[in-house]
């Protein structure tokens, strides 16, 4: 996957916008009619950039990701990816879902990754070799032939990450991919993801609950408010990638303040 054209791109985030989300409102049709999840979201993701989505639980982060992935149509506003609107799901935007049942239970870990590659046109032998490499890359060399029900939650999540990375997508959509992992594994995978993004110039839209993860991995952080949510602010955290840098502490304080403010307005008595 190191042979992506964007590999030679200049500093991340200076390219043209790859994804544009403009005035998007989206919700779900239920038995009681339409319920809004996101009221008004606008942000852009430039090619090679890593943009983080953060906000309180239930504010519509996964919903926004589903819109970009092409599973949901926005009720208002528009989403432009690579010049196209009216998106259908496709492997150019590989998704790591939040749900733990995202692996095909009838295929092994290796089979899951290899199948994704074959389904998108890679010849069988090459698909298996690539799949193996990517699983070794997430530390699963010992579990290639296990079925998903024989893997722990974190291991399943790592298979899903390997599957998405193996597809070498234009854009990676990740929904709290490291949420179920222990601190060490999470740290290692964060580091590996950052390195991979730097090497291949892959564009990433990443949902997280963790302020630290947002600051460390992101170039910019989109802070969402309570449901039905709006974008409260987009915080620039490019270049802050070491926890001991003074900018790190500042960015973290800024994000914490934004999210705490959100908490306060949400729990203030209504008048």
């Amino acid at each position: 996957m190191a042979d992506t054209a964007e590999a030679s791109a200049a500093a991340p985030g200076t390219g043209p916008p790859l994804l544009e989300v403009a005035g998007v409102a989206v919700g779900y049709n239920g038995p009681d009619g339409y319920t809004a999840a996101v009221a008004d979201a606008s942000f852009t993701v430039r090619a090679g950039e890593t943009v983080m989505l953060i906000g309180p639980s239930g504010c519509g982060k996964s919903t926004l990701l589903r819109v970009v992935a092409g599973f949901l149509r926005p009720a208002a506003g528009r989403v432009v990816f690579d010049g196209r609107t009216g998106l259908a799901p496709g492997p150019d935007r590989a998704v790591v879902f939040q749900e733990s049942d995202q692996l095909l239970p009838w295929r092994t870990a290796l089979g899951n990754v290899a199948y994704a590659l074959r389904a998108t046109g890679t010849p069988r032998a090459r698909a298996r070799a690539l799949a193996r490499d990517h699983l070794v890359g997430v530390g699963l060399a010992h579990a290639l032939d296990r079925h998903p029900h024989q893997l722990s939650g974190g291991m399943k999540q790592r298979v899903a990450i390997a599957r998405a990375l193996a597809l070498a997508p234009r854009m990676l959509l990740m929904d709290e991919p490291f949420g179920a992992l222990d601190a060490q594994t999470r740290g290692r995978l964060q580091h590996d993801l950052a390195a991979l993004v730097r090497r291949t110039g892959t564009t990433v839209l990443f949902v997280t609950h963790s302020i630290d993860e947002a600051v460390l991995l992101g170039d910019r952080v989109v802070v969402l408010g309570d449901r039905p949510s709006r974008v409260r602010e987009v915080v620039d955290v490019a270049g802050v990638d070491r926890p001991d840098a003074p900018e790190f502490t500042a960015a973290r304080r800024r994000l914490r303040a934004l999210l705490a403010e959100e908490e306060e307005t949400a729990h203030a008595p209504a008048h």
């Binding site: 799901p89 492997p91 935007r93 995202q102 692996l103």
Partner: peptide, 26 residues
């Protein structure tokens, strides 16, 4: 499961291939 179908669709599968490779085994 909806997620299983979503995985197939996000790989670009549609129609008969989605049925054969995802829905039938599931």
């Amino acid at each position: 499961p909806a997620t299983t179908v979503a995985v197939g669709r996000s790989l670009g599968l549609r129609g008969w291939r989605l049925v054969r490779d995802i829905r039938l085994p599931a």
